[in-house]
């Protein structure tokens, strides 16, 4: 088992005929994803990579019910497409696009909450259950299947951490990118709870960063978990008041600092790696200690 997606998850791709949409559709198909339709208004009836294109989500859902959808459209159009997917009955929505306006993101989350839809992103690399399915843009080659769950705020940094795990022979059950924006759908806790409940996940790696209090809030939940959590955080050396690329990655008024996050995580019983390549050793150590206990 995995969380959120597997080889049976039926997926729509919104914005499939664009350059990004086409390329990543082929990559997702290669990783095993069951893509049953693409949405591109005005292009219904075409076929891309063997996948039928529909004009609207409703039309696609009449042909076959999809559980998940991934959005590749420009930022201006994201709100409309997200509403369309949520209204159309999609249960898991992944928004890859970055620079989605803050108010649009909040409106999307309000509607998703009402319809009980889980939203991954915006500004996420997506999620993958290696060898089963991928909804996102990450390179397939760095993942191997296994029993360590990974949840991250940041894209390439999680590739770095996952590569280290893979090199050390540690496979992943599911890897989830929450997204780097100020307002995103899933929180660390939402994903940690699913990993905790997943019988095939034995440990969880959390990749966080400075800014906000997502890691501090996650710590409250980690305290209650039976599975070990290994954390790595970026931004240890970042000066206060400078926004480091991600909208959320800024230390404001002494809040969201590296130290406050490490203290909270350690107090909750999490292992904290201070260097990226220490993560795989800590995962092995955590699993060994768990076995002894």
């Amino acid at each position: 088992m995995t969380i959120m997606i597997n080889e049976t998850t039926k997926i729509l791709v919104q914005g499939m005929t664009g350059k990004q949409g086409q390329f990543h559709t082929s990559q997702m198909l290669e990783s095993g994803s069951k893509i049953i339709g693409g949405i591109s208004p005005g292009k219904g009836g075409q076929v891309v990579h063997g996948v039928p294109i529909y004009d609207t989500v409703e039309e696609a859902m009449m042909a076959e019910i999809a559980e998940a959808s991934v959005i590749f459209v420009p930022a201006k159009q994201v709100k409309d497409c997200a509403f369309e997917a949520i209204d159309g009955g999609i249960k898991t929505l992944v928004i890859i696009t970055e620079h989605v306006p803050l108010h649009d993101a909040m409106e999307i989350m309000a509607f998703a909450e009402r319809k009980q839809v889980q939203v991954v992103g915006p500004n996420t690399f997506g999620l993958i259950s290696p060898s089963k399915a991928k909804i996102g843009i990450m390179p397939n080659s760095i993942f191997i299947p296994g029993s360590v769950g990974v949840v991250a705020r940041s894209g390439t940094l999680s590739y770095e951490i996952v590569s280290q795990l893979t090199k050390a022979g540690i496979g992943q059950s599911t890897v989830v990118g929450l997204g780097g924006d100020r307002v995103v759908g899933l929180s660390f806790i939402d994903v940690l709870a699913q990993f905790e409940a997943d019988p095939e996940t034995n440990a969880v790696v959390l990749v966080g960063e400075i800014g906000g209090n997502a890691e501090e809030e996650a710590s409250l939940f980690i305290k209650t978990m039976s599975k070990p959590v290994i954390a790595f955080l970026a931004g240890k050396s970042a000066p206060p008041g400078k926004r480091m690329g991600h909208a959320g990655a800024i230390i404001e008024r002494g809040k969201g600092t590296y130290d406050s996050k490490v203290v909270a995580l350690k107090a909750a019983g999490a292992y904290v790696a201070s260097l990226p390549w220490e993560v795989s050793d800590l995962v092995k150590k955590a699993l060994a200690e768990k076995k002894e206990a």
């Binding site: 991250a152 390439t156 940094l157 590739y159 770095e160 970026a234 480091m244 991600h246």
Partner: peptide, 17 residues
């Protein structure tokens, strides 16, 4: 210079380290 906000931050941390 790096590609991605998180990895850039982590790279800065390593230079300090």
């Amino acid at each position: 210079m790096a590609n991605g906000a998180g990895i850039t931050m982590a790279t800065l941390d390593l230079i300090h380290e």
